[in-house]
C-alpha cells in the first residue's frame, strides 16, 4: 500500500513539473504584453519593466530561473499586474478564503446530495426519486450566475442578517457556499443514486432484507460503503476545484478568493501569477486524487494489493 502511495506521489510531482513548465511556455506564447495599458508607453519603459521581472532573458533561461528560485528559495516570483506583489502573498491572502468557502460548499454539497441520492435509490421510480432527480438536474443545469443572483434577491434581501455580497461577517460564507454546493450536490445525488441502486440489487442485500434486517440498517451498515465509491472518486477533483475558488461565484458575491485571480491573471498576462496558480492547483489536485486513492483503498480492501 505504501509503495502505491509513494508511486502516486512521484507521478504527481512529474505531472506538476510538466504542467507548470508547459504553462510557463504557453503564457509566453500568448499575444500582448503584460505591461501595456490604455496609455501608450515608450518601448524603453516597457523594456525596463520587463527587465525588472527578468523577462529580458531567453524563455528557457527564465523557466530555469523560475524553477531554481522556487526550489531553492521558495520564491514564486512577483505579480506584474499588481506591481511587484509577491505571488505567495496573493495566494496567502486568497487561498484561506477559498478554502473556507470550499469546505462549507463541500459540506453543503455532500449534506444535500447524499441523502437525495439515497432517497432516490430507495424509492426508485416513485415520486421521491423523481423529486430528487429534478433537484439534481436543476443543480446541473442552472449555472451559478443564475443561482447566485436568485439567492441574493430571494434569500439575502429579505433577511437583514445576510449580506447581498461581500466578505464582512461570518455568515457571508453561506450564500456563495450554497451556490457552489448546489452544483456539487447535484452530481453527488446522481452518483449516489447510481451507486446505491447497483448495490441494492446485489444478492447479499436481498438476503439481508429476507432475514428481516431494518431498511436503515441495510443502508448504513451494508449498502453505503460499497455504494459511495463513485461519489468519493468524484469528490477528489471536485474538492480541489472548489478549494481553488470559482470566478463566477466570487465575482457575484464579492468573495476575495483565488478564483478571480485565474481569470484576471490570464487577461493581464500576469506570467508568475498564472504559473503560481497552476502550480498550486496542480499540487492540490494531485493531493486530492491521492486522498481519494487512499480512501478507496480503505473502502475496498482489494485495491490495497
Amino acid at each position: 500500500m505504501y509503495k502505491a502511495i509513494l508511486s502516486r506521489i512521484l507521478q504527481t510531482l512529474i505531472v506538476v513539473f510538466t504542467l507548470v513548465s508547459v504553462c510557463f511556455l504557453i503564457v509566453h506564447a500568448l499575444p500582448g504584453n503584460p505591461f501595456t495599458g490604455e496609455r501608450a508607453m515608450d518601448d524603453v519603459v516597457i523594456q525596463r519593466m520587463e527587465a525588472s521581472f527578468g523577462l529580458d532573458k531567453p524563455v528557457l533561461v527564465q523557466l530555469g530561473l523560475y524553477w531554481k528560485n522556487l526550489l531553492l528559495h521558495g520564491d514564486m516570483g512577483a505579480s506584474m499586474n499588481f506591481k511587484g506583489v509577491p505571488v505567495s502573498s496573493i495566494l496567502g491572502q486568497s487561498f484561506p478564503v477559498s478554502f473556507q468557502l470550499g469546505i462549507v460548499a463541500m459540506l453543503m454539497g455532500c449534506g444535500i446530495g447524499m441523502p437525495l441520492g439515497i432517497v432516490a435509490a430507495l424509492y426508485r421510480n416513485k415520486w421521491p426519486d423523481y423529486l430528487s432527480m429534478v433537484v439534481a438536474m436543476m443543480g446541473i443545469c442552472l449555472p451559478s450566475f443564475v443561482v447566485g443572483p436568485l439567492l441574493q434577491l430571494y434569500v439575502a434581501k429579505p433577511m437583514p442578517m445576510l449580506n447581498i455580497a461581500g466578505w464582512m461577517q461570518a455568515q457571508d460564507v453561506l450564500l456563495p457556499a450554497l451556490t457552489l454546493g448546489f452544483g456539487v450536490a447535484a452530481y453527488v445525488a446522481r452518483l449516489m443514486r447510481g451507486g446505491m441502486l447497483e448495490v441494492l440489487n446485489q444478492d447479499y442485500i436481498r438476503t439481508a432484507r429476507a432475514k428481516g434486517v431494518k431498511t436503515l440498517d441495510i443502508l448504513l451498515k451494508h449498502a453505503l460503503r460499497p455504494a459511495i465509491t463513485p461519489t468519493v472518486t468524484f469528490l477528489g477533483p471536485a474538492f480541489a476545484a472548489v478549494m481553488t475558488g470559482s470566478f463566477v461565484v466570487e465575482t457575484i458575491f464579492g468573495v476575495p478568493g483565488m478564483g478571480q485571480h485565474f481569470v484576471d491573471a490570464v487577461t493581464a498576462k500576469d506570467l508568475f501569477l498564472i504559473v503560481g496558480l497552476v502550480l498550486f492547483y496542480g499540487i492540490l489536485m494531485g493531493l486530492a486524487n491521492l486522498a481519494v486513492d487512499i480512501i478507496l483503498m480503505f473502502l475496498n480492501p482489494r485495491l490495497r494489493a
Binding site: K157, N163, G166, T251, I252
Partner: peptide, 17 residues
C-alpha cells in the same frame, strides 16, 4: 470595496451595504 461586478455592486447598495 473592489467590486468588479456592477450588478453585485448595485444590489449591495440597495441592500444598504
Amino acid at each position: 470595496y473592489p467590486i468588479k461586478n456592477v450588478n453585485t455592486e448595485t444590489r449591495m447598495f440597495l441592500n444598504g451595504q
